[in-house]
Design a binder for these strands. Structure first.
Ligand code: FES
Ligand code: FES
Lengths: 146, 146
DNA sequence: TCTATAAAAGATAAATTTATCTTTTATAGA
DNA sequence: TCTATAAAAGATAAATTTATCTTTTATAGA
């Protein structure tokens, strides 16, 4: 569906967002531990998130990752786009070179419904909303408690 | 979403199904050419499809691949299951070890809607229905005509 | 039985994704 | 300025998926 890197990215972003109120910066190690992702891979992913302005980073002592107000308002689809691109929301479900209503594959109608539902899910949810949910304790971004 | 192998598999199965009325057996080369997939890779995929009884094969002269009546009634999800397994319909959208309503990720509700829509699409469509659509000329299983 | 044909099986190889490790750059505070 | 710290950048490596090539097996018809 979406890549592993992208899933780590979303969880990491939610974690950083969920700590905004505390006004602290988070380092790679803490983020990787919290979201249960490999540390070095997480570092690479955080680079992308910073470069695409999903979150913000500062080097050096007292540095780390944090999120700014405008970034909380971004839809989660921006993270998907940063890591995987938008192709999952546009591709033909049966692998034709392009999805098109005028040259459709035989599953086009049914597949498009699901694909659009997926896009809506990521488009209509903001990073801030997800962080709030986590802070309220109703949902989780790691596998602890199993 | 689903693997490339699985997309080739679905297109190949639809092609074989669409030729059922002609009562002929199709060989690997013809199938690969029609669905615009690499020939050797298609051969591997057809092996799986035969082994999982999605289609039927016969070795030797006058051999090849064909589909039987009961196989036309199978839902497309059986092909997905044969190639990729069912995990795409069960996995957490944010990569938690397991999707669960009692230990949900913050996107669980929205994601589940899309994931279930995808499952419905593959579950409620049979191979025969797709083949019929192609035979009626309303949809396509290759990239010709671009 | 022999021959030709076509899929099955098995061994590799190429490409992509996931993951790790080392070196460089930026920056705060002493 | 110097030192320590933390991310960025770059070079590899491991794992998985996609793809190819060779050998074996099954089978129809001569
Ligand atoms: S053409 Fe296949 S999903 Fe649109
Ligand atoms: S827990 Fe993440 S989708 Fe269900």
């Amino acid at each position: 569906m979406i890549s592993k890197a992208c899933k780590y990215a979303i969880r990491a972003t939610i974690f950083v967002a969920s700590k905004k109120e505390e006004g602290i910066k988070l380092n790679i190690k803490d983020i990787a531990r919290e979201v249960d992702a490999p540390e070095a891979f997480t570092a690479k992913i955080l680079q992308v998130l910073n470069k695409t302005r999903i979150i913000t980073s500062l080097k050096g002592p007292y540095g780390g990752f944090y999120i700014e107000d405008y970034q909380l308002q971004q839809p989660v689809i921006n993270i998907v786009n940063a890591l995987d691109g938008m192709s999952v929301f546009q591709e033909c479900g049966l692998g034709l070179r392009q999805c098109s209503a005028t040259h459709p594959c035989p599953m086009h109608d049914q597949y498009k419904i699901a694909r659009d539902a997926l896009q809506d899910a990521f488009q209509n949810t903001t990073i801030g909303q997800l962080a709030e949910q986590v802070n309220e304790g109703g949902s989780y971004i790691n596998n602890l408690g199993y």
